[in-house]
Write a protein that binds this DNA or RNA. Sequence first.
DNA 1: GTAATCCCTATAGCGACTAGAGGTTCAAGA
DNA 2: TCTTGAACCTCTAGTCGCTATAGGGATTAC
Lengths: 139, 139
Amino acid sequence: MDFSIGDLSRATGVKVPTIRYYEKEGLLEEPMRTEGNQRRYRNSDLDRLRFLRHCRGLGLPMPAIRELIDLSQHPDKPCEEVDRIAAEQLQAVRERIQRLKILEKELARIATSCDGGHPVTECNVLKAFADHSLCKGEH
Amino acid sequence: MDFSIGDLSRATGVKVPTIRYYEKEGLLEEPMRTEGNQRRYRNSDLDRLRFLRHCRGLGLPMPAIRELIDLSQHPDKPCEEVDRIAAEQLQAVRERIQRLKILEKELARIATSCDGGHPVTECNVLKAFADHSLCKGEH
DNA sequence: GTAATCCCTATAGCGACTAGAGGTTCAAGA
DNA sequence: TCTTGAACCTCTAGTCGCTATAGGGATTAC
């Protein structure tokens, strides 16, 4: 009902400087202060911070989270925007996976191209790192 | 046989400020200068920069590239170190893919949990973003 | 009352660039 | 040979999402 920043940190796993950073970025509201200028939070702040952490864990960039917060504060808006953000993020993750899979292929080829025991001048791995034309495609 | 920094940039696709940055970081040797203090490169610099760009494209972090460059300048060293760097990078890429696949699952679930047309207060996607306990596992 | 722990602000650093300001040099055409 | 405009120079600051540190003040448990 009245948490210090450390309480909030322990409750959410978000580090103290990160909480202050979110506040500075406008993702958390400025909380009340004690007479001695220390922050005191309420349950709603805890909810907001959990939301934030979950979104960050899901890889949403901060502008997207900002949008979600704005939307959630206009309850009568339709939820298409929210759905769009989720879909975009899913799309972005899928693209990253695709790119990494191409990389994985190249690296697997490179890493197995040498059986060790050479001096580096004859190392196929080093040659493969030097020469993109040995790769099957783009990366 | 004697390139300006712009020539090098066009030949490799690496931007001019990035080339200067690589030099500052010690990944490229300091080239000769004209009387008017402009950089002039040789073919070996072009090779080095292509190597650099390829490694970066493959996702190697700069310390790893530094190691590879150091190794390649001691030609009589055995190539186990080179192989190790490739294997580590492959491992790192595979781990990133695994983590992203977990994310993909969660996001796919979240993104399909709402059929649109609600006000945001009733949007399941927003609820899913707020509540980690709805997720199957960690992410 | 005192000590331990917490909290405050402000600044700088991470990685790997990228952008801009403000000034100098080069190279091609007249 | 002169001029013009593109390319070059250095230096600084900004990007993203934090994290770390310094140098202090507040709170709390005993």
